[in-house]
């Protein structure tokens, strides 16, 4: 296994202050602290070349886990092993094999061209000239940024800068890549470009990638396996399609009608989620979806009918709220 986490815990001590002036005075004399479990006893493993989606709402513990894995944070308890190293020891041999990319966080020199930062990383990671040129050429081709190499970083758009950030993070060809919200703030076109790049990079380099994202499209398009975390605990770890089977206890029938049908009649088949003639969306129990579809075709004038899986975002929301 490339990444192995066993009973990882990371607790923060948070200062609590009562509101108001009196609270401020009290806080001067006696400070109250509360322990917040950011990551609470989680375990999972990731094999070589896997691309895993690590998802959860804000404050779930995703970024804290990535920080523990990359060696930025000392865990409160448990063990973490990446490539056989203990990350928080931050040995140079370890740091040379990983990269952590955080969306909208900058390691580029603002007033110089991005190439200067690449050259700095070349020296820091002790990459020889030939390897540097080869990797840079590959990344520049993949991201299509040849024309931007001589442009001052401050003059680049957010999307262009993100591409340059990726090159800076990948110039040493890391074996393990931690991507924290790599598409945040990007427009839809740039998000797609970024996803295409991550997929190609994973295929070409066989790098192990752990990806967090708020955009379910990122996860759907890139990760076959997902780990869902909330309140510091893992709620699900497995294949994305199995998540759908396990948690989506219903299917969605998307119907286009030829003639108007009273909503009450449609409700007799299942939950009418949406009805905007001619289109109707009906939610039915997963096991009864075929029977319900047959009923619709028999009873109503149907132009088109599709049986669909529910939206992945809805399923994950259900997992978080434990509705399923």
């Amino acid at each position: 296994m490339i990444i192995s986490i066993n009973h990882l815990k990371k607790y923060y001590k948070v200062h609590e202050k009562e509101p108001g002036f009196i609270g401020s005075i009290r806080s001067l004399v006696h400070r109250k602290y509360r322990t917040v479990p950011a990551v609470d006893d989680i375990s999972f493993e990731i094999g070589e070349g896997e691309l895993v989606g690590f998802i959860g709402p804000n404050g779930a513990g995703k970024t804290t886990t990535l920080k523990c894995l990359s060696g930025l944070l000392y865990p409160t308890g448990g063990t973490v092993s990446v490539l056989g190293f203990t990350p928080f020891e931050r040995k140079n041999a370890y740091l040379k094999q990983i990269a952590l990319v955080m969306g909208q966080k900058n390691q580029l020199w603002w007033d110089l061209t991005a190439v200067e930062t690449f050259l700095l990383n070349k020296e820091i990671y002790e990459i020889d000239d030939g390897e540097y040129k080869k990797t840079l050429h590959e990344l520049v081709e993949l991201l299509d940024v040849e024309s931007l190499l001589k442009v001052q970083v401050r003059k680049l758009s957010l999307g262009e800068r993100m591409k340059m950030e990726l090159i800076a993070a990948l110039i040493h060809s890391p074996k393990v890549l931690f991507l924290d919200e790599p598409t945040i703030g990007l427009d839809v076109v740039m998000q797609k470009n970024m996803r295409d790049f991550i997929r190609q990079y994973n295929e070409i380099k066989r790098s192990t990638i752990l990806l967090t994202s708020h955009y379910m499209e990122d996860v759907r398009q890139l990760a076959r396996r997902v780990v869902i975390i909330d309140h510091g605990k893992i709620l699900y770890d497995g294949k994305l399609d199995e998540l759908i089977k396990k948690f989506a206890k219903y299917k969605v029938l998307s119907v286009v009608l030829d003639e108007y049908v009273m909503p009450d009649k449609l409700k007799s088949v299942g939950d009418l989620v949406e009805y905007n003639f001619p289109r109707a969306v009906i939610r039915v129990p997963r096991s009864a979806s075929n029977v319900a579809a047959a009923q619709i075709l028999q009873k109503f004038p149907v132009d088109d009918l599709n049986i669909e899986e529910p939206d992945i975002e809805d399923i994950i929301r259900d997992v978080f709220t434990k509705k399923t």
Partner: peptide, 9 residues
Amino acid sequence: LAKYLLRPF
């Protein structure tokens, strides 16, 4: 500081 801690330098 995170940026520096991630570097082998």
